[in-house]
């Protein structure tokens, strides 16, 4: 007992189980963030006046301390993973919306004009021309959002057993086992680097057309 991989039984999970829980709590918010950001960014790109206030709101929400956010949410969603995932979803918007808007705006004017002139309606043009061309920019945003989400999940440990690998930090204090905090920090960092690498690989597969 007391080794690097010996997880205290109060966490009711193995090391691998904690990794699974951590990834689930980190990645689902990014996915939901992307689903919310896509239509919002399209509005921001089309109606230029809407974009600055949209950015302002997401920035203010990002400035809310995560702990305060979570404590507020306990009233509605209780001590659950949802309580951790909602703030993370909202935080991801501050990165994803500008990434998509910049990506869509980076479509060359002549490509945009050519698409219009060939008879693409606005919706088809967005899906088939603007969005695919924005993929590299969107992935740049996704990488930042994902890595920051992976590191933020640990805050969930403060409301009980909802912090994934972050729970090891509170247990390290509780059981006087500093090795557990090493485990938490190192595993989280390795996880972030691996997921980031996967995203880079995925982007390469999706954009064989990009200049290298």
């Amino acid at each position: 007992m007391g080794g690097f991989f010996d997880i205290p039984s109060d966490l009711q999970a193995s090391w691998w189980g904690l990794i699974g829980l951590h990834l689930q709590e980190a990645l689902i918010p990014v996915l939901f963030g992307l689903l919310i950001a896509l239509p919002l960014a399209q509005l921001g790109a089309r109606f230029r006046w809407l974009y600055p206030p949209m950015l302002g709101v997401t920035t203010v929400l990002y400035a809310l301390p995560s702990l305060a956010f979570i404590v507020l949410l306990i009233n509605w969603t209780g001590l659950s993973t949802t309580t951790v995932e909602i703030p993370l979803t909202i935080y991801s918007l501050v990165v994803l919306i500008p990434a998509i808007v910049d990506g869509v705006r980076s479509v060359p004017e002549e490509t945009h004009a050519a698409a219009t002139a060939m008879g693409f309606g606005p919706f088809r043009r967005y899906l088939q021309v603007e969005l695919p061309i924005a993929v590299p920019a969107i992935f740049a945003g996704l990488r930042v959002a994902t890595v920051s989400s992976i590191s933020l999940v640990s805050v969930g440990a403060l409301i009980g057993n909802e912090g994934g690998l972050g729970n090891l930090l509170s247990d390290a204090l509780h059981y006087h086992r500093p090795i557990l905090s090493w485990n938490s920090v190192i595993t989280t960092a390795v996880l972030a680097i691996l997921i980031d690498g996967l995203l880079v690989l995925l982007r390469r597969l999706l954009t064989p057309w990009a200049v290298r």
Partner: peptide, 8 residues
């Protein structure tokens, strides 16, 4: 001008 091809 500049062709305006779809890069993707």
């Amino acid at each position: 001008q500049h062709a305006g091809l779809f890069p993707h």
